[in-house]
C-alpha cells in the first residue's frame, strides 16, 4: 500500500502511541495506522483526538477517495486505555473542581472523544470518503465502534469483536448502529449474552463483510480499496451526504446523543457488595488482567 509515488506520510507521535498516516495521492488512498506499541493496542485520549483530526483533514483532501483504518502489531485495538480514564475526566472543564469529576466534565469528555460533532465515531460515520476497516485481533470497544461506523470491514480469522465494558459493567454507547446492522435480537446477543463474537460469528451476523486468512488481508484490502476508488469523487460525495440524511431515519443521531448522556451517567455506576469492580481493576491492572480477574470472580 505504500507506493513510491506517495506524497509525504506523517506520523503524529502522541506520548506512548501514534497515529501514522500513509497518503497515496496517485491511488487516491489514505491509510491511518493505530499504533500504541503496547499489548492489545489500547488507545489513549491523545491518540483518539489525533485520529479524529486526521479524519477531518482527509475529509477535505480532494485527492483522497478511500480511507483505510488499521492497527499495528496484530490487534486493531482493545479499546480506550483504562489507566488514564480518571485523569481524562479530571482534565476536562469542571473536572478538577472537586475530588470526584463533575457531570459536566464527564459529558464534555463523551462529546469531545466519541459522540459529539468532533468525536471519533462521528468523524468516522460522517466521513465524506469511503472508509474501510482492516480488522485483526482484538476489535473491542473502540474497535467495535470503528467496525460499526466504517463503511466496509474486512477481517482476518484472528479478529474478535465485542466490549468488555458491556460484559462487566453494562451497556453504554449507541445501539442504533449495531441493531441496524444485525437486527435487534442478534444485537442483544453481543450486548448482553455473549462476551464477544469471532470473525465468523460477526460475518454470519452481518456485522462485517469478509473473513480471510491473516496473510490474505493486506492484498484484499488493497484490492477492495482500488475497486472503490474507481467511483467519481462527485458520486461518492453525493451519496455520502444523502446517507447522512438517511442515518437520521435509523435514529442514529438520537442514539449518539443518548450515548453521550448515558456514558457520562455510567461513569457514576455503583458496584453492589459482592459485585466485581471491573473499572477499578482495569484502571489499576490493565484490561487483560481485569478480564481474567472477572472470570475468576464469577467462578
Amino acid at each position: 500500500m505504500n507506493s513510491p509515488t506517495s506524497s509525504a506520510a506523517g506520523t503524529q507521535q502522541e506520548g506512548l502511541g501514534s497515529i501514522r498516516l500513509e497518503r497515496d495521492a496517485q491511488q487516491h488512498l489514505a491509510t491511518l495506522v493505530v499504533s500504541s506499541g503496547r499489548s492489545g493496542n489500547p488507545m489513549t485520549a491523545a491518540m483518539v483526538r489525533t485520529l479524529s483530526r486526521r479524519l477531518a483533514e482527509l475529509s477535505v483532501d480532494d485527492d483522497i477517495k478511500v480511507i483505510v483504518i488499521r492497527g499495528e502489531g496484530g490487534d486493531l485495538t482493545c479499546g480506550a486505555d483504562p489507566a488514564e480514564a480518571e485523569q481524562v475526566f479530571k482534565d476536562a472543564p469542571g473536572g478538577a473542581a472537586k475530588r470526584v469529576p463533575s457531570q459536566r466534565a464527564r459529558l464534555a469528555v463523551m462529546d469531545d472523544l466519541w459522540w459529539g460533532p468532533d468525536g471519533l465515531y462521528t468523524r468516522v460515520l460522517r466521513c465524506p470518503k469511503v472508509t474501510l476497516l482492516a480488522a485483526q485481533g482484538l476489535c473491542l470497544d473502540v474497535g467495535l465502534y470503528l467496525a460499526l461506523c466504517c463503511d466496509l470491514v474486512l477481517a482476518d480469522e484472528t479478529a474478535v469483536f465485542g466490549s468488555p465494558r458491556w460484559r462487566h459493567v453494562g451497556v453504554d454507547g449507541d445501539l442504533s448502529m449495531l441493531v441496524a446492522a444485525v437486527g435487534l435480537k442478534r444485537a442483544k446477543d453481543l450486548l448482553i449474552f455473549s462476551s464477544r463474537w469471532t470473525a465468523e460469528q460477526a460475518l454470519d451476523a452481518g456485522l462485517i463483510d469478509e473473513v480471510m486468512p491473516a496473510e490474505a488481508l493486506e492484498a484484499r484490502v488493497a484490492h477492495l480499496a482500488a475497486f472503490c476508488t474507481q467511483v467519481m469523487r462527485d458520486a461518492i460525495a453525493a451519496e455520502k451526504r444523502v446517507v447522512f440524511a438517511s442515518l437520521a431515519k435509523l435514529q442514529i443521531g438520537t442514539g449518539f446523543a443518548t450515548a453521550a448522556a448515558v456514558g457520562a451517567w455510567a461513569s457514576n455506576l455503583h458496584f453492589q457488595p459482592g459485585e466485581f469492580n471491573f473499572l477499578r481493576e482495569a484502571r489499576d491492572q490493565g484490561l487483560e488482567a481485569a478480564i481474567d480477574a472477572a472470570r475468576r470472580h464469577a467462578e
Binding site: 463503511d151 453525493a238 451519496e239 435509523l250
Partner: peptide
C-alpha cells in the same frame, strides 16, 4: 455512483446497513 444504493432507508432495512454499503460502494 451509488445513487441511493447505500442511502435508501428501505434498502438498509432489508439488507442491513453493512450489506447496503458493501454492495453500494463496490457495485
Amino acid at each position: 455512483g451509488p445513487a441511493g444504493a447505500v442511502s435508501a432507508t428501505h434498502i438498509n432495512r432489508i439488507l442491513g446497513t453493512k450489506a447496503a454499503r458493501r454492495y453500494g460502494y463496490s457495485g
